[in-house]
Write a protein that binds this DNA or RNA. Structure first.
Lengths: 342, 342
DNA sequence: CTGAAAGCGCTTACAG
DNA sequence: CTGAAAGCGCTTACAG
């Protein structure tokens, strides 16, 4: 089998389509079609080709395939950060769904910066990805055009939209923010602070939900919002907890925009001997690892990032195969998780 | 510029090497060489070519390049899990180092199973990765052969070895395990339990360090080892903490093989009213997020996974460029972080 | 339903 | 130091 190969100077030593074709006694195109499952090939031939491919241990060359078809087997996934476990869960779900379907996941980290995302997009598009997964809708005009003009199937995650032609899987961050605030109100809390970091678009949507709930209850007080642009972290949560208590000792509940902040707040409360929920109720967002094990366990909003990852990947697979997609906008909802901190 | 392109039926609309060559008035090969920085091209030509490429917005086609050169711009990174922040830190450092050098990171999750790693390797090798990053040395014979026979540069991370021809960046898990145990001994602890989960090779190396330290002190007691094969987690740490206390109420210190277990243990102690370190000292491993904020703050071993990721990526870059590598085995050490839990 | 030809956009040898 | 030719391993469009 290596005789033919060794004659050519630049042979890679790979088993090629030609080798399989020779072994099966058909033309290379037929092998290509049979292996890709194009229906136009006779059943008996398909079997013969598959047997030959199997016997020779043939593995298609992704580079050759990408060059000829103008489409690779890569899916670029653009997320803000890896240090937020939310996105790790999402990424893992996407990866787990795409791999068995024959697609590789390329990660891109945007650090919450539209300009960085634009640069990543620019370089990733050169790879002719088969598909694209992006976080939310906040991007530069250039990035938007790049995606649209490329014709590469794209699914947006974490938020929803009903703009025509847009594919997305997420939930309403605003509604979820409103729901958890309403829960605090239902517990009789009246001076509810909103403490946030990072201040990305989704955080601000939660803020909007918080505001609506308080406006509806005639309890909105702009002074109860503590918005910090730094990265979200346990440590920052502790500091912000202390800052709220210092600035507004009358606050009877705190809604942290993310669980890591809330966990930090809870730890700070323990350290300071502040009783939760008696003195102040604490709620978080996302239901991250450890929230159920805090003291007291943290009330939060469970967000379906694993399901979002899976559904978005499935939707993308359909788009990449040019199959019809039942619904182009999927709202997967959220779930209040009431524990002892409220 | 599209006249030439539109004549060809299958044109991708891309700006190609030929377009640049035409614009610069040289042959395509010269453009290829100039852009890749091959020294054999005249300085004046290089400038002209670069200007033309810039003007046309030329971006090389990775698929074509991979096909022609038999080498892609992808680096496959095989790690056990994404849910352990240790590996997220590692992955992020690798990604951050490789991207500016023009390499894309492909993630592979092995779930700590050599057989899964072997299958991943099989499929990733078809992509002709430019380089490979793998975790530790525990793999199937087939996987080992696949790597060796492929000729793809490979760097091993997290452990060290002085086997000839092996490239690795890590530290001695055994020594680190010994050091933290010796610290507990130096604090006057005598009945020190070792509590572990996952039981992967690196965990067992830490166990070995623990045993050596206790043997040296004539305090080794096999009954003080609690080895649980389940995945490491906060919740499991809590359970194992309780189990140790139940089985051996005389234990005066616990060395958890990972910080998530230790944090879970600390939270369980808080819940149960067990005083740390008075009643029992608690030490962890890895210095993960939040360990410094526990109550009390957790004594642990800081492991240099970020530096490991950076150095391993640098070493891989050298290997991929066929540059000489100063040292093929890098021991980046570890650092005891003594806090209030011991 | 099957195939011969051409082409995807680069790089590798081989010349000069 | 520069170039013409061939080839990497596939798939696309055009025939039959």
């Amino acid at each position: 089998m290596s005789t033919a190969a060794s004659k050519r100077g630049r042979s890679s030593g790979r088993v090629t389509l030609n080798d399989v074709a020779e072994a099966a006694g058909v033309s290379p195109i037929t092998v290509s079609r049979a292996l890709r499952g194009e229906r136009s090939v006779g059943a008996e031939l398909v079997e013969r080709v598959q047997a030959a491919a199997q016997a020779l241990g043939y593995v298609p060359d992704p580079a050759a395939r990408a060059l000829a078809s103008q489409r690779s087997s890569h899916v670029a996934v653009l997320i803000p950060l890896l240090s937020n476990t939310l996105f790790v869960d999402l990424l893992e779900a996407v990866h787990r769904t795409l791999l068995p379907a024959g697609f590789q996941t390329l990660i891109g980290i945007t650090h919450y910066k539209p300009k960085e995302e634009e640069l990543l997009l620019q370089s990733y598009m050169a790879h002719r990805p088969a598909g694209l997964l992006v976080t939310g809708f906040d991007r530069t005009e250039t990035a938007r055009r790049l995606i649209a003009s490329s014709g590469v199937p794209c699914v947006h995650v974490m938020e929803t939209s009903d703009a025509p032609g847009v594919h997305c899987v997420g939930f309403s961050q605003m509604e979820a923010g409103r729901a958890i605030t309403q829960h605090l109100l239902s517990r009789g809390r009246r001076r509810i602070a909103f403490v946030a970091a990072q201040l990305d678009p989704r955080v601000m949507q939660r803020a909007e939900g918080y505001r609506r709930a308080l406006h509806e209850a005639n309890l909105y007080d702009a002074d109860l919002e503590l918005l910090n642009p730094d990265s979200s972290s346990l440590g920052l949560g502790g500091h912000l907890f202390e800052e709220v208590r210092r600035r507004r000792p009358d606050v009877d509940a705190i809604f942290f925009c993310n669980d890591d902040l809330a966990q930090g707040g809870l730890l700070a409360a323990l350290r300071l001997g502040v009783k939760v929920p008696q003195e102040v109720a604490v709620a978080g967002f996302n239901d991250l690892t450890g929230s159920d094990l805090m003291l007291p366990p943290l009330t939060t909003v469970h967000t379906p990032r694993v399901e979002i990852g899976e559904c978005a990947a499935q939707m993308l697979l359909s788009l990449m195969r040019r199959e019809p997609v039942a619904r182009s906008s999927l709202d997967l909802g959220y779930r209040l998780v009431i524990r002892e901190s409220t």
